[in-house]
Design a protein around this nucleic acid. Structure first.
Lengths: 126, 126
DNA sequence: ATTATAACTTGCCAGTTGTCAGATGTCAAG
DNA sequence: CTTGACATCTGACAACTGGCAAGTTATAAT
């Protein structure tokens, strides 16, 4: 039901600006024929296409993604602060040291946790 | 260059949790074979798929979208926590996992870092 | 009316995605 | 060594996306 709307909203917005399909095509780099099909619901725009047409139509990227059902209505960012609220405390010193590493490295380090726990389990089970 | 990373990050995260392809498949509703191909870079995940696997992997939705290049970098503001750690970001998932451990355990985990680096150095000095 | 031109539509096809079913690899138990 | 059970990979296929080129339908101007 949101999806039917998407095509209408895109068309409405284009007409209102106003732009022709060719003009929108020129600004977005998406072929006019494809844009036309999207507007009349014959094709569903991929994320790639949505990203291209968002700005020329005056949308924020997120808005179109939500309308398309690619993102849920609330971004619901889990920030570090939120994480702390939902669980225990994150030691500031620990946070500082870790934040100086790449995210990849951070994950590797944290990945050691389940390993340690698994070892602990097998030791106590004996 | 971000795109090569995506497959690696997804695999890393799955292994780290840890989950098998089948388990992730069960939680996300994406076929195991497809997940496997995504992880080894043979297929590129659509937005539809990213949305499905984000939560089971502990990612916020837009995080994966950004990594996939479907969204440009955060339009939203920088968190105060990030500002404090002048320099790097602390991955939210990492923060969440760590904050559920005791501070003592957090410090132990971070303490492993210099050890690993020392080992890595001696390996590259070959 | 008749061209001319701009706007949109349709036919077709190459390239991808995601699924199912079956093959392959792996490892512990008998 | 063989069996059974997992986990992962491969082959084949239907469905879909998006572009190009040719077709149709307005809209204007003479």
């Amino acid at each position: 039901m949101e999806i039917r709307n998407l095509s209408k909203i895109i068309k409405q917005q284009r007409i209102m600006i106003p732009l022709t399909l060719q003009e929108l095509s020129a600004k977005s780099g998406v072929s006019p024929s494809h844009l036309g099909r999207i507007e009349r619901g014959e094709r569903f725009p991929s994320a790639y296409i949505l990203r291209k047409i968002a700005s020329p139509l005056g949308f924020k990227e997120n808005e179109l993604f939500i309308l398309a059902g690619y993102l849920s209505t609330q971004p619901s960012d889990i920030t570090e602060a939120d994480a702390v609220h939902s669980g225990g405390i994150l030691d500031p010193y620990v946070a500082k040291v870790l934040s100086q590493e790449t995210v990849e490295m951070q994950r590797i380090i944290v990945g050691i946790l389940p390993i340690l726990k698994s070892i602990a389990r097998s030791m106590s089970n004996k």
